[in-house]
Design a protein around this nucleic acid. Sequence first.
DNA 1: GAACCACTAGAACGGTCGTAATGTTACACC
DNA 2: GGTGTAACATTACGACCGTTCTAGTGGTTC
Lengths: 193, 193
Amino acid sequence: MTTAQRIPARTRLLEAADRVLFERGIRDTPVDELLRQAEVSAATLYTHFGSKDALVAEALRVRLADWRAVWDQYIVAADNDLDRLLAVFDALASYRGDRRHPSRWCAFLAAASELPEAAEEISDVLAGDTALLADRLLHLSRPLAGGHAQDLADEVLLAYSGALAGFLRGSPRSPIDVGRRLAHAAARAHSRD
Amino acid sequence: MTTAQRIPARTRLLEAADRVLFERGIRDTPVDELLRQAEVSAATLYTHFGSKDALVAEALRVRLADWRAVWDQYIVAADNDLDRLLAVFDALASYRGDRRHPSRWCAFLAAASELPEAAEEISDVLAGDTALLADRLLHLSRPLAGGHAQDLADEVLLAYSGALAGFLRGSPRSPIDVGRRLAHAAARAHSRD
DNA sequence: GAACCACTAGAACGGTCGTAATGTTACACC
DNA sequence: GGTGTAACATTACGACCGTTCTAGTGGTTC
C-alpha cells in the first residue's frame, strides 16, 4: 500500500473517472464513488483538479485523445479509400470492445445530454469530438465522392451518431454493423454519380 | 384568475412538463420550476402524480402518443411506398417545428441518457418508442425490400436516431435532411436487389 | 533531523432538491 | 346554504452532494 502503488493519484483518479463516469452516468456518479474507486482522498482530488467538473472535462479530453489514436490505427491499416472511410466503424467496435473504456453509449454525447449547461470546458470537448469527426470524414470522403464529399461526410457522421444512439435503445441487431452498412450504401450512392 | 383559467391543474402540469422538461433537461428542471410554470401548488402535483418521476413518465407517454399521431398523418398523406417509409423524417421535422413540444434532441433518448437507473415506468416509455419505430418501419419496409425488410428497417431507425443525435452535436447542416438522404440511399440499395 | 511534499482520513458546511405537512380559499352540488 | 372537493400558499424536513477544513502520516531531500 502507501505510495508503493507507484501509480500517482492523479492518474488513478483519471482512470477511475474513465471507468465509472460514462458507464454509470456522469451525474449519477458522486464524487465519493470516484474517490473510493481511485483510492484517493477528497483533498487530493481538489488539489489536482479543483472541481468535479474539471475532472470530468479532463477525463473527456483523455478519451478523445485515446479515441483519436485508435481511429488512426484503423485508418492506416485500411488499404483502399472505401475502407478508410468506413474505418471509423471498425475503430468504434474496437474501442467499445476494450474493457478499459466502458460506456453506455458515447461519453461525449452523454455529457452533452446529461449536462446541458455544463462548464464551457466540458462542452468544448463535445465540440472537439464533432470537429474531429467532421474534418476527418470530409477528408476521407473526398477521394470517393469528389464534389459531394461534404454530403457523404455528413451522412457518415450521422450514421456514426446513429450507431451510438442505437446502444441507448438497446437494439437487438448490432448498431455498428447497421451503421457501417448505411455508410457503405451512402458511399456507393455518391460514387455512382 | 382562480379556477376561471378553466384548464384543470393536471393538464397545466403536463403541458408545463412537456414545455420545460425536455428543453432544459429533466434533471436540471427542479419541481419548483414546473410548479411555477404550471401555476400550481406542490400539493396539487403530489396528489395528482405522486412524484416527479411519475409526472415525467406521464409527460413522456403523452409525447409518445402525440408523436405517433403526427407520424400517422404523414404516413397517410404519402402516396407511394418510399414516401411512406421516409415519412418518419417529415413527421420529425413537423413535430420539432411545433413550438408546443420543444426539445433539445429527443425526449425519450434524453430520458434514457439522463436517468440511467430511472423508475421502470420511465424506461418503459423509451422501450415503447423504440418498439413503435421498429415495428412500423419494418412494416413500411416490406413492400420496398421484401426479404431484406428487417435490414432496411434497422437502417432507417439508425438514420432516424442519428438525426436526433445530430441535434445534440449542433450540426450546421440539417440532421433531418441528412438522415432522410441516408434512408433514401438505403431504400434504393435494397430495392435494387 | 528538520523541512517539505504528496497524500490520507474523517468531519463539517452550505446548498439544493424532492417530498410532506399545515392551514386556507373558493367553486360546485344536493 | 351547508358540505365536499380541489386547489391554493408557505413552511419544514430529510437526504444527498460538492466542497472545504483539520489534523495527521510517511517518505524524500538537504
